[in-house]
Design a binder for these strands. Structure first.
Lengths: 122, 122
DNA sequence: CTTGACCTTGACGTCGGTGTCAATGTTTAC
DNA sequence: GTAAACATTGACACCGACGTCAAGGTCAAG
């Protein structure tokens, strides 16, 4: 299948698909005319990329998941490298949440200080 | 005082001070030779900018606070416009926290699904 | 006079995942 | 045959708060 079809089936723009390939996450055979030729399995790979991006992973983070799928695993997360990324990501998210809560407290405190009459819910 | 002194006293780079001015947040008289000439009150203004940036405000968000200070208020947050920014910011932070918590749950769920033996604390 | 510390403006680089456009080649349908 | 829809690569634009470098003007100390 050509890039347009893969784009339509995955809901991902051709531009993004080329970008993924440029960064070594996707690969495509080339037809005689130079057009990219994708297989059915690429639909799954693109879906994996999008699923991970949507929960805040970077493109680079998705690499081990794709490798895992290509090695024949049924889910991209069932390899040791992927699990490591999961755990690192959870740590990062937890850290972000902590930072945000701290910031929220600071902002609320500043507000309370400069506007004593203003109540802050939460 | 010239930009170097203000930079040293506030801990903010000359580059940043010029950037603030470029965006209309700071203003300076000019000496005969073209050098910027700051007053004592600018130290306070820069401090206000940094305090707000450090808790996640954008530069644009700081504008009403600076206006408030320039109008003679003792704190940048004691004007109606500033309070509005505070409240909007709190909403944004709350929304970010909600989004992060949701993402955390999704990641944890994906991990649990692809690696049933992996426990996730939290 | 010269060195060096300071100032000026202007412009490019950063980070990430695209959108968009340009210039060109290919395939498909009429 | 030709137009429309598709493909290719390459490159610029975006967002935000700067860092950094370039090329030059200014000023005090030696």
């Amino acid at each position: 299948m050509r890039i347009g079809e893969l784009a339509e089936r995955t809901g991902v723009s051709p531009r993004s698909l080329r970008y993924y390939e440029q960064h070594g996450l996707l690969s495509a055979r080339r037809a005689a005319n130079g057009y990219r030729d994708y297989g059915e399995e690429d639909v799954r790979l693109v879906a994996e990329i999008r699923a991970l991006l949507s929960v805040g992973f970077t493109l680079e983070d998705t690499r081990p998941f794709l490798d895992c799928l290509r090695r024949g695993h049924s889910t991209g997360g069932s390899c040791a490298e992927s699990v490591e990324v999961y755990e690192r990501k959870l740590k990062e998210i937890d850290e972000e949440i902590r930072a945000l809560l701290a910031r929220r407290a600071e902002v609320a405190a500043q507000l309370a200080q400069s506007c004593p009459g203003c109540f802050v819910k939460g």
